[in-house]
Structure formats: C-alpha cells, structure tokens
C-alpha cells in the first residue's frame, strides 16, 4: 500500500505552511522526508494522519481516499504514526502500552468489559503478541516497568512497538532518531529495515542525513512548504544545491 497526496495546502494565520504539495511514497519501501526546520514536514504528517485539517487537498492510502477522516479512522485504515514529542501512557507498564495498541479488541466493548465473555482468551493472545513485539524491538527486559521510567531511547523503541502492534501497512515516523544515542539509532535503523523486509511501507521525517542515505529508498525534500526535490537518495542527496542547503 502506498500513501499519496495531491494539492495539499495549509496556512496558519496567513503564513503558508504547505503550498500545494503532491507526493507519492512508494509501496513497501522506506521514504525519508527531509528539509529544514519549519519547512512543513510535521504539518504534512499531521494532515495525512487526520490530526490537522488542510485548506485544500486530498490524500489516499492505496486506492482508498482518507481525506478528512479523523485520526482513529486513519489508523484503522492501516496507517500509524509516532510523534516528535514521544507520546506514551507513562503511568502504565511497557507491556500495557503495547497491548493497548492491539486492534479489534472485543474487551473494548462495554458489554464485554462488564460481562467478561471471551475477554480472558483474547487478553492472553494480546499479551503474547505484545511480548513478541517487545522482543522484536529489544525491550523484553522492561516489560513490566512503568513506561515513564524508561530512558528516552527506550521510549522511542516502545512507540515503535506500539505502532507495530496496531498492525499497520504504513508507518509514519516523526524524527525517530532525534535525541537518541548512536547505538539506539543504529538499532532503530536496523528495525526499520526489518520492517521493510516484512512488507511494510515506512515514511519517516528526519534530519539525520547519514541515516537517510543508509536506509531510504526514496527521498522527498521539503522547504518552505513545497517539494523541492524527490527521488532515490543517491540522486537527490548528491545534487549540489541540496547538499549545500540541507546536508552541509
């Protein structure tokens, strides 16, 4: 499944954040969105995931249009995301955060919650799946710790696990490597490559150009609300004007 948008426009109090953006991220690959701060990258992410209404434009997941859908419906269409500020439920355990993310839980229905028909079995299954994902990201040792006690890097791994638990086809990650230790960053990059191998599409916003060179299949460069360049990293990142403005 790919994700694409046409004609996205958004301004805040007269300042143009996005001016007519139309992009398409290839299916099953890793796309990086780069550009200077304030270029509109996070605005784009917020619009695509339904958290912000644009002034104009349409966007699609695969063949299905998701224009104007609220965030929870976008997530159910197979598109999950992380946030620049790590968002988690700090008061519950790591395991519970991931179990929360599991979709289609009958235990989330009122009658089932009160009468507890079939919930125990489903919870056991949720727990197994959640544990498997924690193992995948390398947090199995922190399973029963409160999420608020994790280090920043661990929290980022946890948000990735939560993203995956929601069973998406596409992951949109907002600066997944920002502020983490180089070891954790390398770990995250490895995980993203594995996720790609599992057939998912990954789109991430980043400032870390080395990382982009390493794993991205496609790069989109956004500056001042418009797409300045897009293409494979070898091609885009070696253009002199791109190098000068954003990479150096």
């Amino acid at each position: 499944m790919n994700i694409r948008c046409t004609g996205l426009r958004k301004s805040f109090d007269g300042v143009i954040a996005l001016g007519n953006i139309s992009v398409q991220c290839p299916t099953g690959g890793i796309t990086a969105i780069i550009g200077p701060n304030g270029a509109g990258k996070t605005t784009l992410l917020n619009i695509l995931t339904g958290f912000l209404s644009p002034d104009a434009g349409r966007w699609f997941v695969g063949e299905r249009e998701i224009t104007g859908l609220p965030p929870y419906k976008v997530a159910r269409m197979g598109l999950t995301r992380t946030f620049q500020d790590v968002r988690l439920i700090s008061m519950v355990t790591v395991l519970e955060n991931v179990m929360l993310a599991r979709p289609d839980q009958t235990g989330e229905g009122l009658l089932h919650a009160i009468l507890r028909i079939g919930v125990a079995g489903e919870e056991a299954c949720n727990q197994r799946e959640a544990s498997r994902l924690l193992q995948f990201v390398g947090l199995e040792k922190q399973t029963n710790e409160r999420a608020g006690t994790l280090s920043y890097g661990q929290q980022k791994l946890l948000t990735l696990a939560c993203c995956l638990a929601a069973q998406p086809e596409i992951l949109l990650l907002d600066e997944p490597l920002a502020g983490v230790h180089t070891d954790t960053a390398a770990n995250i990059l490895r995980l993203l490559q594995q996720i790609r191998q599992n057939g998912k599409t990954v789109v991430f916003v980043e400032h870390n150009i080395a990382a982009v060179r390493e794993i991205a299949d496609f790069v989109i460069v956004i500056d001042e609300g418009t797409v300045v360049a897009q293409g494979p990293p070898r091609e885009v990142l070696n253009r002199p004007e791109i190098l000068e403005a954003y990479v150096a």
């Binding site: 999950t80 995301r81 989330e108 089932h112 009160i114």
Partner: peptide, 21 residues
C-alpha cells in the same frame, strides 16, 4: 478491562490513543 485500559489512555494522552485507532 481493555475498555478501562483505553479510558486510562484517554485520561493521560487522548491524541496517543486516537493515533492507535
């Protein structure tokens, strides 16, 4: 129950809960 789990998530960070569907 899982219903309560979602309520607790909403209590702390509704945006996060919505982003998970």
């Amino acid at each position: 129950s899982p219903f309560g789990r979602v309520l607790h998530a909403i209590r702390e960070d509704e945006i996060f809960a919505a982003s998970l569907g």
